[in-house]
């Protein structure tokens, strides 16, 4: 891909991000941070490439360390997000007060 094509994806994604994030309900801002954390660890792709590449041992080990760090984030981020989201409940019964 040439630079302009990549830049187009980036710019359009910024706009998508802008509108999608404004529509996130403020009550879920903490899960939003947790899940953005998890997905930004897609940087693991770079770490995987580095650790699979031949040619430089130091590059490979840096890559592997990157894989560990990004995996912590991916698994931890998604797990903590789903743990939080599971707590958001509506009222079980519409009429609570009977007295």
């Amino acid at each position: 891909m040439d630079f302009v094509a990549i830049l187009s994806i980036f710019v359009l994604a910024c706009f998508v991000g802008y509108y999608v994030v404004w529509s996130v309900t403020p009550a879920l801002h903490t899960p939003l941070m947790a899940v953005t954390n998890a997905i930004s660890s897609v940087i693991i792709v770079g770490a995987l490439i580095a650790s699979a590449a031949a040619g430089s041992t130091s590059s490979k080990w840096l890559g592997l360390l990157g894989v560990v760090l990004a995996s912590i984030n991916i698994f931890g981020g998604f797990a903590v997000t789903s743990r939080m989201l599971a707590m958001y409940k509506k009222k079980e019964r519409p009429a609570v007060a009977k007295h």
């Binding site: 990549i6 710019v11 991000g17």
Partner: peptide
Amino acid sequence: MIITGALVGSS
């Protein structure tokens, strides 16, 4: 990575 970066960055 680019889409994610843009999403997280704007978020």
